[in-house]
Computed example of a mutant assay.
Amino acid sequence: MLDFQVYPTYGLLSRAAADVVVSTLEAKPEAVICLPSGSTPLGMFRELVLRHEQGLVNFTRCTFVGLDEWIGMGPEEEGSCRQVMDQDLLHPIGFRAEQILFFNAKADDLPADCERINQALQQLGGLDLIVLGIGMNGHLALNEPGTPFDTYAHISELEPITKEVGQKYFKTPTILTGGVTIGLRHMREARQLVLLASGEAKAPAIARALRGEVTESFPASLVQEHPDALVLLDSEAASDLLQPGLS
């Protein structure tokens, strides 16, 4: 059974997640780290920015890898993964451009851009740390149900629920045609994988990911087979796991 850690509040969960990032950089200042955009990691980002301002963590030698992006969007589009990441983490911490490896989701040749990411990660020696959220349908990044576990960076056809949930990042209704994403094989090969979840709405997905069948139809289930996976939850996200009699 996969171990997981449960915190009574989102704030404590966020601090624990930041602790992992800081510990990774203390052990290996030139680490290659991949962090998600979105609402779940916001508290972790605030904590990392605070520690940076206090001189408690050094980001100057690491490489940051972007997790995913909506097709056709770049850092200038409000609500894009890059814009959110720039706003919440990269700009406040002062990441230099040469430290950042991110998809160009506006590229004319998206398969070639995915291959650029694949080759760059190979040259960097792979991911030292990847931090992930979990989708309601079990997706990791934009790897939707049915994505092969051995897939590297690729173009993703989005499920309706992903398009619907994705609207929360935009001020007006936005057509999301697809995505580009780090692959499930990158996640499986990462030296450490951290999965974050907060809120009662994520409880069913977390229970299935940690206790259900390991299957490509529910990508998050791969955490069960990762040799160094850490699952950090608040009490609401863990509520289905903590029911009496659940094994």
Results as ranks from 00 to 15, higher is better:
74 G>E: 05
139 H>R: 10
137 N>Y: 13
58 N>P: 14
128 D>P: 15
157 E>L: 12
47 E>K: 13
122 Q>P: 13
107 A>T: 02
59 F>R: 08
121 L>D: 01
105 A>W: 04
62 C>Q: 15
93 I>W: 00
51 R>K: 13
118 N>L: 05
158 L>S: 04
90 L>E: 00
70 W>M: 06
135 G>Q: 09
83 Q>W: 13
93 I>Q: 05
118 N>A: 10
85 M>Q: 02
95 F>D: 01
112 A>F: 02
152 Y>M: 09
153 A>S: 09
140 L>D: 03
162 T>P: 08
103 F>E: 02
77 E>G: 07
114 C>N: 00
157 E>M: 14
109 D>T: 04
139 H>N: 10
133 G>E: 05
71 I>K: 08
50 L>H: 10
99 Q>W: 03
87 Q>I: 03
125 G>V: 02
88 D>Y: 07
156 S>V: 11
149 F>K: 05
137 N>F: 15
127 L>I: 02
120 A>K: 05
159 E>P: 11
124 L>E: 00
133 G>M: 04
62 C>W: 11
58 N>G: 11
49 V>W: 12
104 N>A: 12
123 Q>M: 09
125 G>T: 04
85 M>V: 03
108 D>V: 11
72 G>Y: 03
109 D>Y: 04
53 E>T: 14
131 V>Y: 00
158 L>F: 07
88 D>R: 11
137 N>Q: 12
55 G>L: 15
106 K>L: 04
138 G>Y: 06
75 P>W: 09
127 L>R: 00
147 T>R: 01
96 R>F: 06
143 N>T: 08
60 T>A: 08
131 V>L: 10
110 L>A: 02
58 N>K: 13
78 E>A: 06
104 N>V: 07
58 N>H: 11
67 L>R: 10
114 C>V: 00
154 H>V: 05
125 G>C: 04
60 T>D: 14
113 D>F: 01
117 I>Q: 01
63 T>N: 11
136 M>Q: 15
109 D>K: 02
146 G>P: 13
61 R>F: 11
66 G>Q: 08
62 C>G: 15
114 C>Q: 00
95 F>G: 00
133 G>D: 05
122 Q>R: 14
139 H>A: 08
110 L>S: 01
57 V>K: 11
103 F>K: 01
49 V>N: 15
162 T>Q: 10
95 F>H: 01
155 I>M: 14
74 G>N: 13
101 L>Y: 06
98 E>D: 13
128 D>Q: 08
92 P>S: 04
103 F>H: 01
137 N>G: 06
111 P>R: 07
132 L>N: 13
103 F>P: 01
136 M>Y: 10
134 I>T: 04
60 T>H: 15
96 R>P: 06
94 G>W: 02
144 E>M: 15
107 A>F: 01
103 F>W: 01
45 F>G: 09
149 F>V: 14
46 R>Y: 09
140 L>K: 02
113 D>I: 01
61 R>C: 15
55 G>C: 10
65 V>P: 12
79 G>P: 02
159 E>G: 12
59 F>T: 08
123 Q>K: 13
159 E>R: 15
105 A>R: 05
119 Q>R: 13
